[in-house]
Design a protein around this nucleic acid. Structure first.
Lengths: 156, 156
DNA sequence: TTTACTGCAAACATTTTGCAGATGT
DNA sequence: ACATCTGCAAAATGTTTGCAGTAAA
């Protein structure tokens, strides 16, 4: 029987549906992720997990991230800095992300005409394109307003 | 005075122009890279460099890669596997890459209409987009032909 | 009760750093 | 001559693994 009470927590629901056991440490990791705004690194969670009582082992964090990524509940992104980070996302078919460089919050983005660009590139390059990844970085609406106000303090 | 004799070796020329000294180890690293087809990892070059006489130190490889990336002569890409690799590329303004998953060879790709997609995403998401990265993976024309022939041996 | 999971510690992989001596310009 | 660069070895990061005990279903 599946743990219906967890269905509201998307991360746990995804694990449950995939047949993973809903253990204490996994619930704790899901909770750590849910408490975060924006993207997070494995190291962030390891730090958080160490402070928890009982502490969550490093290996468990990595293994849980692997499981969550496997079921599509989180996705790994490569920050411009070169760091690896994760974001939570709906297990949708194929999409991309806009990531805020200030707060790290990410939004899912649909095709928006990218398929046409990809097929044009295929034609021009002669490559058969099997996969692509588009990552966008900038400022989310909130941070944007904050920074633009700061830059022009006497407007408005 | 700049080392004109090196102008033909794009990697060294780029370092020279940027004011880096053209040292023995740097020439050797440029040579290792030039001998490679497709993308390569830092570890690849470290291995190659170890076999060289005299050997090139690990730290020197990393420092040279950093310099080359800084002057835009090589670019770091994130493979679908999660590995970091480098490819050589012309220091062009802004471009993307199609990478062959078989041989690792990469081709530069221009805008191809991506700017329109990015601005549509900006509008739809409300983000102000400052940077983006598009990475494409597939088969180059050569590997494509090889595999397609192998898959349908009695055609043609 | 059975199999999956956890914690721990060690191993492993990757990249960076300090420093003394070598080398390009 | 002198600043830059190299090699070395150690350290800092980041991630994985083996194994004995624990807990979910």
């Amino acid at each position: 029987m599946h743990a219906l009470a967890e269905a509201r927590v998307p991360l746990l629901g995804a694990l449950d549906r995939a047949g993973y056991r809903l253990t204490g440490p996994r619930r704790a990791v899901a909770d750590l992720i849910a408490r975060r705004e924006g993207h997070f690194t494995a190291a962030d969670l390891v730090d958080d997990g160490m402070r928890r009582r009982p502490a969550i082992a490093r290996a468990t964090i990595f293994r849980t991230l692997e499981a969550l990524e496997g079921v599509g509940a989180i996705e790994r992104i490569d920050l411009p800095s070169g760091d690896h980070a994760y974001i939570t996302c709906e297990p949708a078919d194929h999409h991309h992300h806009v990531v805020c460089r200030e707060c790290g919050r990410a939004a899912d983005v649909d095709d928006a005409g990218l398929a046409g660009v990809v097929s044009r590139i295929a034609t021009e390059s002669g490559y058969r394109i099997d996969a692509h990844r588009l990552e966008l970085f900038g400022l989310c609406p909130v941070c944007r307003r904050d920074l633009e106000v700061a830059a022009a303090p006497r407007s408005g």
